[in-house]
Design a binder for these strands. Sequence first.
DNA 1: TCTATTTAAAATGTCGACATTTTTGAATTA
DNA 2: TAATTCAAAAATGTCGACATTTTAAATAGA
Lengths: 221, 221
Amino acid sequence: MDTSRQNTASQILDKLTNDILQGVYLPNDKLQIKALKDRYNVGTSPLREALSQLIAKDLVVSENQRGFYVSDISINDLTDIYQARAKIEGLCLEIAIQQGDDFWESNIIAASHRLAKYTKSENIDMDEWQNRHFSFHDALVSGCNSPRLFQIRQSLYEKSTRYRNLWLKENVTNSENLQINQNEHVALMVLALERDTKAAQKLIEAHIMTPVEIIKKSLSY
Amino acid sequence: MDTSRQNTASQILDKLTNDILQGVYLPNDKLQIKALKDRYNVGTSPLREALSQLIAKDLVVSENQRGFYVSDISINDLTDIYQARAKIEGLCLEIAIQQGDDFWESNIIAASHRLAKYTKSENIDMDEWQNRHFSFHDALVSGCNSPRLFQIRQSLYEKSTRYRNLWLKENVTNSENLQINQNEHVALMVLALERDTKAAQKLIEAHIMTPVEIIKKSLSY
DNA sequence: TCTATTTAAAATGTCGACATTTTTGAATTA
DNA sequence: TAATTCAAAAATGTCGACATTTTAAATAGA
């Protein structure tokens, strides 16, 4: 029965996180204890422990005696998160460019190749494209060896996921946007390899901020 | 009996956080459920919920069926946290200098005055000095109106607390260091008011990194 | 009809109990 | 003596029960 080395609380945390990020539960949805217990087949304790961690991650809010709710989203929050992400990504990239070695360079070239090849292909599976896209950006900053900055970067990326999914729905078929996006990727690689810190930082910040205006429209329908 | 509007889990979270940061529990200490239940007079559930949040905050680690432990500290972690803090503080200050208005300026001047006055006084109470020091740095970055960046800043500050307390023990009596420190504060104020972003950023990063070498010595005894 | 008040139903947060796993330490063996 | 085995003790993680609070529904009053 117990297929994993993890405890129930951790397992339920993963599932809940995923379900919130993927929109199974929408912003402001009530997360009713009993309903969740039934859905995931768990008892009160591990469920509430998972919810406690989600509070610390800002994906859930709670009020005493009034239960748990999925965190709200808003245009203000969208802008703030993306701006913070852009700045942090710029910071990581700056350090990566300062510290990156030959392997860092070659990993960028490799990841860029995989992304470019797939972007040009006929039938694009969005999950696969996302993987390659993610890997490319990971490769760019991987020269920065700061666990804490990476943790912050990862945490902001997670917080942006619900907004990003709105963007993906709008742009999954838009090949023109995809091409603009791809040109930026190539430019980022070149700037990184040239160790042009300032220009690379400026571009990555703009690159990350690109979806914001589109998402804003989705949010205000 | 119930003196507050908070639930037990939140209250216990505050107490535990404080006790870990203040060294009541030392790095790697086992946090035994039963002992904590007795100490804080609470049941299993709220205690474990509090511990779950502490895990998300990196102050506690856990291993399935082996319980909870206070997070370790190390020279690597110390360096990483302080470097990340320095960068984030620089980022916040950069934005504050871009966006700060007259009130921002006047708040810096006021906080600087309160800190300077107290630093010059005869019998310095370290708690009060810390309050004024904290307020000054808060005033500097308060022009940056990004909730997320502030949250990151706050979180890193908290993570650095256990290290900072080592520094405070070493330097509580060292008036020479306090004077060097104070000169930097004045310089920071001047640069901020002059809107000299680059210089201010450079100085704040150095200012934050100053204690690191001293703390390293404390850590390796 | 609309607002207040009362009552019933539902949900939350906390507790102690218990099955399972880990740790301890004594007994046994080499 | 040192290492291994085994049994007892202790600790962890999960569960359902329950008191308290909130919400919803029903009733009464204006």
